[in-house]
Structure formats: structure tokens, C-alpha cells
Design a protein around this nucleic acid. Structure first.
Lengths: 197, 197, 197, 197
DNA sequence: GACTAACCGAGACGGTACGTCTGGTCTTAAG
DNA sequence: CTTAAGACCAGACGTACCGTCTCGGTTAGTC
């Protein structure tokens, strides 16, 4: 009745005909919290609204689907995509695995795995995920092409296919909950293949 | 599709104190049909019961969770796992990709992708999937070890890791809806790696 | 998680493939309670479900609309429609007003008023109300016709119109919250009219 | 209908620190339009705001509740309350019914019926309706008293009760959607009653 | 001419209710 | 003992509306 404070604690009002950034933060925080606490099925729109003390309509306004919310959560927690370029492609790959597995081990992995899962039945998420994956592939392609120019790679190597295999390996370890492997082992296998030559 | 009727018309009764095989068939058929018709979210226990003209309790008796039902559907449609052994590991890998991608392209792929998705939030499915994956890894390990014995592989190759990468590549193409690539390209990359040696 | 007792108190389960009378009672009781406690706008399907500890689907199964629920509540509390036949029409009318006003004063009046209100925007309720009203009109018509036969009424009297006016007067007092008037006064006015003759 | 435009195109701005009559007109027009087009439940504050291209705050400023808006709409469309005084009370009553039923048949009736409905759950509307009804009763009381003075009525007639019965009859026909009856029939019944004397 | 005051549209906000659907559990009646 | 049927509670789904609030802009009168 008389509690009109925005001040410090749990009362978020409209700030006019525009988005309230506090609201966005509260919703994404709540979504992440639920995701980690109760797993993928704990992330219902209702539960997020309750947890964030937000109206359901507010959530649907900005994230029309469950998948959009998942993507929002991931965008919020993911860091920059640094690609080392040490002059040795094997070392670069190993560094990538070390870095991404460590990042995924704290929360972000569960989120990303659920995004991949959601993409299997939500076309919009699938599209967004494809776009995201495409960026990562391109990052790796430039790395490979630079390596090729300096003569490090076999001449017949298809850079796109090589990049794809790195992403495939990372995803596979995420989806099968094996983020504790040594990146250097994976890197060696991918770098030299299996066949004597 | 229609040979699952009991006699003439749609009435499946109890056949006494034992499981009615017609019921199982009708339920799995219905589940697959819904899966392909409406996607992953169309496979609800209620819908399956309606479609199969089965009681919900009957479904829950044999497939206690959605995941169990998915596994049941996949078990029903999947064929044998033949692993060629031509004496050339690259050729064997290529043949595997060709075979599995073709199989996945007709229905089974959607089912398997949904199983992977479900495994991200259903522990039981995750376990079953891990067991299944383990079998496939073992299959490939024996293939690799035989190749190693006959001197086809580099001595330092970790057969488990190599097998894992093949599965990773297959899953990745499934999950990103790219089952139309040439298996031989994938095989070459995996077989020889990227780095000159 | 493990509380599956039906035991003694507040746990209503299915009793097989048929309607559970306990459920119906609990829902109608809850509806009436809310109606009287919070007025017409307090009767929401959600609130009834909460109060009756019933699933919303259960309510919608038997009472598809708010109006249907209102009618159900009224049917539950209304008594028999006794029409005195004392040989004096004025006395009969007076007795009716006394009786119905007293009945309406304890709860039932609020319910019936809300039904009339709901009928203004819900066609189904309007229809049900019209049917109910028609019965009451017929009751009165027979009373009037008997009075006519024994020579108590003017020959030109339209029995239907006369019956209608009685109902109109009763409704009007209900809708304007004046159920405390003396029935005999109303009866005299209706019986003799206003004009000298 | 169309003369409520500001100039040529749909942009109504503030006209300074006072109420904009164009705004009021637009809102009441929109409310009436929605009411007639979609029935009582179509009159939501949001819908009116959309239809009238008005801000919700503007509506709430002048009509704080749904009921107030209804009353505003009715006030806008209702004409003067003329009471004929022909020297014959029966004729006057008949004329009243003819006039009010005709008026109600074109739109106004639906609005007034909804006001009566709203009054059953909104205390403010109930109060406003009671005041309005009181005025009409008083109008009729003076008519009856004049008739009594000139000796047209029975001496024992309660003028207030008589007036009440006329209003009751009118409302009843409105609420039960029977505005097509002949006013003179109603008038005769009310004027002479039913009992021989 | 600057300032104030109230009005106006737009629309975001936290909520509640809507009517529908699904998840699991349970009971009945038929065989 | 199994089956189809379906009622039961619980609660999520996405939508609509509630009444409050802030914004940015307008215009009329006052100083």
C-alpha cells in the first residue's frame, strides 16, 4: 500500500515505457539459479517468474520461448572467445580444450548442454545455436588457415572439416559429462590422426 | 502399421494375467508416429495413450518415464551394428559414416537426437545412453586394436580416444542436422589428422 | 513424495472411471464460501480449485464456465418451490414474497443475483435462467387460473402477465437489495392495482 | 461518430492543464463500440485504451473503475426522461413503457443491463444505480400524487410502491430480453390489478 | 520569456485469472 | 492379473487484463 521504494530491496517497478535493466538481471539470475538447482526441468517460466518476483508477461515480453531464455542465460555468463596463436597448432588446440572445459565445468556447461538439447525440438534455438556454432567454426578456420600458410599443416587438409571436428569433440565431452579429460591428449589425436604416414 | 490390430476392430482387451504384445506394439508405434509427426514435444504420455488407445497406467507400467519410452522406440527401429573390417582403417571408418548417416536420415536420427537431448535432464536416460555409447566405443576399440596389430596405426595412438572421436563426429553431425556429408571426407581427416609429419 | 495416504482427512483420489461425489461437494462448497466471503469477483476458477483442493481440470470437466458453477451452487442450496393455495390469491402472493425474501436473505439471494448478472453476458446462463424463470411463471399461472375458475379474478386478466409481474417485483427487490419489505404490501398493490374501478 | 477527430488524422495531444473533450469523446465512443461489438466481457480497460488510442492512465484518471466507465457511457447516450401527463394514469404508464422499451432496443438497453449486472458486485455502481433509480421513482411519485389529487386513484394506494412496481416491470423485461411487448398490456395489469373489486 | 502545472500517448511493471494440457496416481469394470 | 477407460490433484503452458508507474512531450496560464 505504502511501499513505493525501489531503493535497495525487492521492489522493481516500471521505469516508463522502456525496459528495466534490473528486471532483466533479476530474471536471468533467477533462471540460472533454477537451472543449476533443479536441472533442466526446473526451469519453468512460472518458476522463474516466482523466483525473480517478476510477472510472467514481463518474461514472455523479452524471451518469448524457453529456448530464448536459455540463450539469454548463456549469453550472460559466457566470456570472450580467445584463441591462442602460439605458432604451434597442436598447442593451440590443447589450450582451447583446457580453457573451454574449465569454463564449462562451472555452471556454463549445464546451460550450454541444455541449449543443445532444446535445439533438438525448438527450431528457433536450433537456428541460434547454428549461428553461434558457425562463428566458432570461422574462428577456428582462420587459425587453421594461418597455420597452413606457415606450412604447419598437410596440404590436403580441409580447414572447415578440421574446425568442425574440434567443436564436435568439445560438444561430445560436454554431452557425455566428461569435461575432466586432458586437453593435450585430445589435441594430439586430432592433430596427427591415427594412421601411420 | 495396421497389422497390430487384435482381430478386426480397435479393441484390445486383457489377454489374461500376462502382458499383451499387441499393446506394446501399439504403444511404440504410436510413440514413433507422434515423434515424427509433431517433434519432440509432441511425445507426451497422454498423447501416446490416446493414439494407441491404451490406458495411461499401462504405459507407465512398462516405461516409467518419457526417456524410457524414447529408448524403447529406438530399440525397436535400430538395426544391427555391423563394423566392416576391410583391412584398411580409413575405409572402415568411411563405411561406418555412410551407413549410420543413411540409417539416421530415415526417422531414427530424430529419435536418437531426442534421446541425447533427454539425457541432459533425465539421469536414467543419461545412464542408458552412456551404456549404449560404451558398447559402440568398445566395438571401435577392437577394430582399432586389430589395425594396430597389423601395423596400420601409429604406435602412440590411444585407441579409446580414437574411437571416441569417431562417435563424437557422428553425434555432432546428427545434432546439427548435417547428415548429408560424405563419410570419406570425415574419415580422411580423422585418419591422418591435420599436422604434417 | 511418499505421502500416498487416503486415510482420514483432505485427500480425495479418483474412485475409478466415474465422478467422485465428494469432489463435487467440495467444489460447490468452496464456490459458495468464496462467493459469500469475497463477493462475485472472488469466485474465480483458480480460487475455487485452491479452496477445494481440486485440480482445475476437474472443475472445468463438470462446470465448463463460471456461469455453470454459479448455477450449480444455486441448485445446491435452493429448496422446494411451494405455492400456497389458500383460496385467497392476495394471501398466496403475500406468502410467496415472505417466503422467498426470507430464503434469499440468507446467502441464496447473493447467488441468485449474481446469476442474473452473469446472464447479461453469458448466453448459456441466460438460457438456463430463462428456463428456470419459465417454470416459476408456469407455477404461478396455474395458481392464477385456479383463482379465475373460482371467480376471484377479473375476467380480462392475462394470467401470464400477472405471473410475470410477481416475478419482476421479486427480482427487483433482490437486485436493489431491499429484501426487508413486507410481502403483504407488495401483494395488495399487485392484487388491486392503483386505479379506482 | 466521425466528428470526434482532432483535425484530420489520429493524433490527440494534451491541450494544456485541462481535460481534453476530444479524449473523453474518443474513450466513451470506444467503450460503447466494444460493448456492442463483443458484449460485456469485451469492455476491458486495455481494449478501450487500444481502441481509443488513449493511455490507460488517462482512462483511469476520469473513470477509476469499469463501473464508472459503464455509467459514463450510459449518461452519454441516454435522453431526457419525459413523463407524459395526459390526465389518465393508465395512458401515461403505457406511454412510458412504449418509450423506454423503444429507447432500450437500440444499444442503450445492453448498456443499462450491464450496469445492473455490475452493480451486483461493484458497490460504487450499486450506489450510483440506486441514486438514479431513486430519481426515476420520484418522477413517478409526483405523477401518481397528481393523479391521486384529481381522484383517479384508490385512496389506499402507496404511491412509492406503485412507482416501484413500474420500474420493476421495466427492468425485468430488459433483463430477460423481452423489450418487444406491448406497453399498454403491462399498463392495464398494473393499473387495475388482478382481483375483482 | 521562463516556469509551472496538468494533460496526453505509450507502454513496462508485478500480479491474478483464464482455459488447456501434461504428469503421475488411482479405481473400476471387463476379460 | 492385465487391460482400457478415465477421474483425480497438481501445476506449467501462453494470453489477457488488472491497476500502478514513469517517461517524454504538449499546451495553457502565471509570474
Amino acid at each position: 500500500m505504502d511501499q513505493h521504494r525501489q531503493s535497495e530491496t525487492h521492489q522493481r517497478r516500471s521505469i516508463g515505457a522502456r525496459k528495466n535493466p534490473n528486471t532483466e538481471a533479476a530474471i536471468l539470475d533467477a533462471a540460472l539459479k533454477l537451472l543449476l538447482a533443479k536441472g533442466g526441468k526446473g526451469l519453468s517460466m512460472d518458476a522463474v517468474a516466482r523466483e525473480a518476483k517478476a510477472g510472467k508477461a514481463t518474461i514472455y515480453r523479452w524471451w518469448p520461448t524457453r529456448g530464448a531464455l536459455l540463450l539469454g542465460v548463456y549469453a550472460r555468463i559466457k566470456g570472450a572467445h580467445v584463441h591462442a596463436d602460439t605458432g604451434c597448432i597442436e598447442t593451440d588446440i590443447a589450450a582451447f580444450f583446457e580453457h573451454v572445459f574449465e569454463f564449462w565445468q562451472k555452471d556454463a556447461g549445464r546451460v550450454f548442454a541444455l541449449i543443445i538439447a532444446e535445439a533438438q525440438s525448438d527450431l528457433d534455438v536450433a537456428e541460434a545455436l547454428a549461428a553461434y556454432r558457425s562463428e566458432r567454426i570461422n574462428d577456428w578456420m582462420t587459425v587453421f588457415e594461418r597455420a597452413k600458410e606457415r606450412g604447419e599443416l598437410r596440404d590436403t587438409v580441409d580447414c572447415k572439416l578440421a574446425a568442425d571436428t574440434i567443436i564436435a569433440t568439445a560438444w561430445h565431452h560436454l554431452l557425455t559429462n566428461r569435461l575432466d579429460v586432458k586437453g593435450s591428449d585430445l589435441a594430439r589425436t586430432l592433430a596427427y590422426g591415427v594412421v601411420k604416414s
